[in-house]
């Protein structure tokens, strides 16, 4: 069993397959931003506190600043860039737009990816449950009020309702 200085990884990101030889210490967030050029995923704190780097790995929201890229080898990643389909925003993106759930927008991709995981597991959340779900995502602008509203709006839209307009 060999100790590797470089490691080859293959990942599927937003439906496209990539293979790279990387340094084992490369963090997943830097792989996504610097190797793939997908800069929608942000680095806020770099200490696993703010959630700006959240992406979906194998169906689950994770903080990509606290994973080595090699840990995603063989896996499937979804970033905020992969949400829109045929020029149409994902319902969660639409919800943020409609409910004024962002100001500077720095936290937004992370918030959206966390909610993507949460709403897939809990399609009918209470306000309290939404607030708990985004515990690991910090927003310095909005005061969270409209983010929570957007989450509930998106949940309804995704269940096939019209959104709370």
């Amino acid at each position: 069993m060999e100790a590797l200085e470089k490691v080859r990884i293959t990942v599927k990101v937003n439906g496209k397959i990539y293979t790279h030889d990387i340094d084992p210490r490369l963090l997943l967030v830097h792989y996504i931003r610097d190797y793939l050029g997908l800069t929608g995923t942000h680095v806020g704190c770099d200490t696993s506190n703010c959630g700006a780097c959240t992406v979906i790995l194998n169906g689950k929201a994770v903080k990509s600043c606290t994973l080595y890229a090699f840990m995603a080898d063989g896996g499937e990643i979804l970033t905020v860039e992969g949400l829109e389909k045929d020029g149409k925003l994902h319902p969660i993106q639409e919800a943020f737009w409609e409910n004024h759930a962002l100001q500077c927008g720095f936290c937004t991709p992370g918030m959206i990816m966390t909610l993507y995981d949460f709403l897939s597991r809990n399609p009918r959340p209470t306000e309290e449950e939404v607030r708990r779900a985004i515990e690991g995502n910090l927003c310095r602008c909005t005061g969270y009020q409209n983010i929570v509203k957007a989450a509930l709006w998106a949940a309804e839209r995704m269940r096939g309702g019209g959104g709370d307009e």
Binding site: M1, E2, A3, L4, E5, V7, D23, P24, R25, L27, D46, T47, F70
Partner: peptide, 12 residues
């Protein structure tokens, strides 16, 4: 904050 270098072993 980059972690220090290391060699990687991935047992199967």
């Amino acid at each position: 904050m980059y972690p220090p270098r290391f060699s990687l072993i991935v047992p199967s």
